[in-house]
């Protein structure tokens, strides 16, 4: 408990650092938001009025504190072209979250059985094939596998209609169906890494003394594997999965572009292109918070799985 509190306060410190970095980055760049909203035709007095209204004339730390206070209250500011940022993000966020969850689910159900299987049959034919295949798939960037999937499953086999995205508000199952292939594209590289990690980890644990002890006490292979080995072998995998979940959210930026999915990623890209900085700021802060919360959760799970860590750190 003490440890969790310590970690959580560390996280808050890091979050403050992130928010300062993000705020400074977007407020020190040249360009005047007032001019951006009113256009270059506006008169100086109009600009002044808007700047006053937006509080742009205040010193920078006042602006930072106001921004962060609004952020905490859930008011993410106004987009230069679409109105409230909060409403915009709330509308898009389920799409990206579902995509990440589906990719994570795929990774979980495929890589864990495959990792255990290849470790148990180390050196066998299937193991050898999986190891080589693993390396090859790992080298394929997700957007390229996305393109290949579109080409093969979308355009040739016509299992889905590329660009035929339906909103979750209209047809939820159609929406999930459309996300299956993008989720595969995001999950593929993570699956390969996870299989490799788990396989190595299980093989390492199997060779340790406690495994032999467990065997000699009359346990079956199955019992040793699931009750003893896997508990230890899963520890590095849990860390990896936490990182992978965060990566999947950012990976969806590219994949949303490949499959024409109007999620957070596409919004981020179009906001970057339109220099709509309030939206960019909000999305980046959101992703940073997500990553840190996931890290914290991983830390906590870690302690639950492996009580030894507690003994070392406290």
């Amino acid at each position: 408990m003490k440890y969790i509190l310590k970690k959580a306060s560390m996280m808050v410190l890091t979050l403050i650092a992130v928010s300062i970095l993000v705020f400074l980055a977007f407020n020190l760049i040249p360009g005047d938001p007032a001019t951006r909203i009113l256009g270059t035709e506006a008169t100086e007095s109009q600009l002044q009025l808007l700047r006053q209204e937006m509080g742009l004339n205040d010193p920078i730390y006042v602006r930072y504190l106001r921004w962060i206070w609004n952020f905490i209250r859930g008011d993410l500011g106004e987009s230069y072209s679409y109105g409230s940022v909060s409403a915009l993000i709330l509308d898009k966020i389920p799409i990206t979250i579902w995509l990440a969850i589906m990719a994570f689910f795929l990774m979980f159900v495929i890589s864990i059985p495959l990792g255990i299987f290849t470790a148990r049959h180390e050196g066998g034919v299937i193991d050898k094939i999986v190891v080589v295949l693993d390396q090859v798939i790992m080298a394929i960037p997700p957007f390229f596998s996305g393109i290949i999937i579109t080409l093969v499953f979308g355009l040739t086999l016509q299992l889905f209609v590329p660009g035929g995205f339906v909103s979750y508000k209209i047809d939820f199952w159609g929406f999930i169906g459309y996300l299956v292939f993008p989720a595969i594209a995001i999950a593929l590289p993570k699956i390969t890494m996870c299989v490799k990690l788990l396989r190595g980890s299980v093989i390492e644990e199997i060779s340790k003394d406690y495994t032999r002890t467990a065997y000699s006490r009359g346990n079956t292979t199955r019992g040793v594997l699931y009750r003893h080995v896997l508990k230890n072998a899963m520890i590095p995998v849990i860390t990896f999965m936490g990182m992978a979940l965060a990566d999947m959210v950012s990976g969806s930026i590219v994949i949303e572009q490949v499959f024409n999915i109007p999620g957070i990623g596409r919004m981020l890209l179009s906001s970057i292109n339109n220099r709509d900085y309030p939206v960019v700021e909000a999305i980046i802060m959101g992703i940073a918070i997500l990553v840190m919360v996931v890290n914290l959760i991983v830390d906590i799970i870690y302690r639950l799985v492996d009580p030894r860590i507690e003994a070392i750190n406290d």
């Binding site: 890091t14 992130v18 990976g251 980046i284 992703i287 940073a288």
Partner: peptide, 10 residues
Amino acid sequence: DAMLAFPSIL
């Protein structure tokens, strides 16, 4: 730490 909270592509 703050920078590592962002995936590198982001």
